[in-house]
């Protein structure tokens, strides 16, 4: 079963008096354990697509299904809960909270009933940042911070992982490590992962690559 299904999504922004069509009937399916990449030049609509899949932005038309649930028909006030329970985000920069240590970065967002299923310690171990468990972001390297952020994305056992240019703030080696870790965790835990990137050196880690051009996804 596809954990993420996007069906004929259309989105345009009002740009002054003109309407700018960013997505034109885009469809995409990602299965559990599958890692796909969306590539394309800056401004091609990658972040817009990811925001729509991530319940942060509503499309003009089209359907988003996550884990079989039709998310796009849910009222906006339920979106936060859907994001919390079904979606793991990895952003361009780590976006950790400065006043929490690594373990707390994870447990702060962990749902009570998910505590049995996933442990923060286990995730930090798998991402090789066990030594940072009591450390604060100010005392960690860029790579370590991004790995804690990746661990955070998995803490609530979500259906899908959405990563928007996760390598952008890292050097080549660390960037590659970060994508490797997203890939490993997604495979191990059977999550559907979507990575937006224009870093071609990591594309060998990706199962399917979708270029986004003129508002359309090509394969």
């Amino acid at each position: 079963m596809s954990l993420l299904e996007i069906e004929k999504i259309t989105k345009s922004y009002q740009d002054g008096t003109e309407k700018q069509q960013v997505l034109d009937e885009v469809s995409l399916k990602v299965d559990g354990g599958e890692v796909v990449a969306i590539v394309g030049p800056s401004g091609s609509g990658k972040s817009t697509l990811l925001s729509i899949a991530g319940m942060l932005l509503s499309p003009d038309r089209g359907i988003v299904r996550i884990g079989g649930t039709e998310e796009s028909s849910l009222p906006k006030k339920e979106w936060a809960k859907e994001r919390r329970e079904r979606i793991g985000f990895v952003f361009q920069s780590h976006h950790l909270l400065p006043y929490l240590n690594s373990e707390e970065q994870l447990t702060l967002f962990q749902e009570k009933r998910k505590q049995k299923k996933v442990s923060a310690l286990e995730l930090l171990k798998e991402l090789d940042v066990e030594s940072c468990i009591r450390k604060y972001p100010a005392n960690m390297s860029g790579g370590e911070k991004q790995r804690v952020a990746i661990a955070r994305a998995f803490i609530n056992d979500p259906d899908i992982i959405l990563a928007d240019e996760p390598t952008a703030s890292l050097d080549a080696k660390r960037g590659r490590q970060a994508v490797e870790m997203i890939r490993n965790e997604a495979k191990k835990r059977g999550k559907a992962a979507v990575v937006v990137t224009h870093d071609e050196r990591i594309l060998d880690l990706i199962d399917k690559i979708y270029p986004l051009e003129n508002g359309k996804l090509m394969l």
């Binding site: 991530g54 942060l56 936060a80 809960k81 859907e82 994001r83 919390r84 329970e85 979606i87 985000f89 952003f91 976006h95 909270l97 967002f109 955070r152």
Partner: peptide, 13 residues
Amino acid sequence: KQFGIMKALGMSM
């Protein structure tokens, strides 16, 4: 910005 991140990660109002 921090609040935006917490909201994106699904923290309830």
